Amino acid sequence: MLTLAESGDPVNDPSQVWPENRRQIVAGTLEVSHVFDQKKGGCRDVNFDPTRVPKGITLSDDPVLAARAGIYSHSHSDRVREIGYGKATDAVGKPQKDNAGNK
């Protein structure tokens, strides 16, 4: 569901609530038809960045977007590091190694 801003609505401060009478559009329906274990899923190694948008879409100057981009990037780096050290057992489908590298 998309809520459309009107002139004067704050678009750079997510703490400000818009009036309930704003026009809303159903943008689509998400239907989950299959679920993958993360070791086989296509999103395990993907970093979500809310500031990367397709051509024709522009970001507001909401500072939360930039903060989220940085935080998500840091989280992605941590996950990749855990996989490299053999600690993300659910992500790779292998038993966890101890500090000596033993399984």
Results as ranks from 00 to 15, higher is better:
2 L>R: 11
2 L>K: 08
3 T>K: 03
7 S>W: 08
8 G>E: 03
11 V>H: 04
12 N>W: 00
14 P>D: 08
15 S>K: 12
15 S>M: 03
17 V>P: 04
20 E>T: 14
24 Q>R: 15
28 G>P: 02
29 T>E: 13
29 T>D: 09
30 L>E: 10
31 E>R: 10
31 E>D: 10
32 V>A: 06
33 S>N: 09
34 H>V: 04
41 G>D: 15
42 G>Q: 05
45 D>P: 02
46 V>S: 06
47 N>V: 10
47 N>W: 00
48 F>D: 02
49 D>E: 07
52 R>A: 05
52 R>Y: 00
52 R>K: 12
53 V>Y: 07
54 P>L: 04
54 P>W: 08
54 P>G: 05
55 K>H: 11
57 I>S: 02
58 T>D: 11
59 L>C: 05
60 S>M: 00
60 S>G: 03
60 S>R: 01
60 S>K: 00
61 D>N: 13
63 P>S: 05
64 V>F: 07
64 V>W: 07
65 L>Y: 10
65 L>G: 00
66 A>V: 01
67 A>I: 02
67 A>F: 05
70 G>K: 15
72 Y>A: 09
73 S>M: 05
73 S>P: 00
74 H>G: 12
74 H>W: 12
75 S>E: 11
77 S>K: 09
79 R>A: 14
80 V>C: 09
82 E>Q: 13
83 I>G: 02
84 G>L: 05
85 Y>F: 15
87 K>P: 00
89 T>C: 09
89 T>S: 15
89 T>M: 07
89 T>K: 11
89 T>E: 13
89 T>V: 03
90 D>W: 11
91 A>G: 13
93 G>K: 10
93 G>P: 05
94 K>S: 07
95 P>W: 12
96 Q>S: 13
96 Q>C: 08
97 K>V: 13
97 K>P: 03
98 D>V: 04
98 D>K: 04
99 N>P: 02
100 A>G: 03
102 N>I: 02
102 N>R: 15
103 K>M: 04
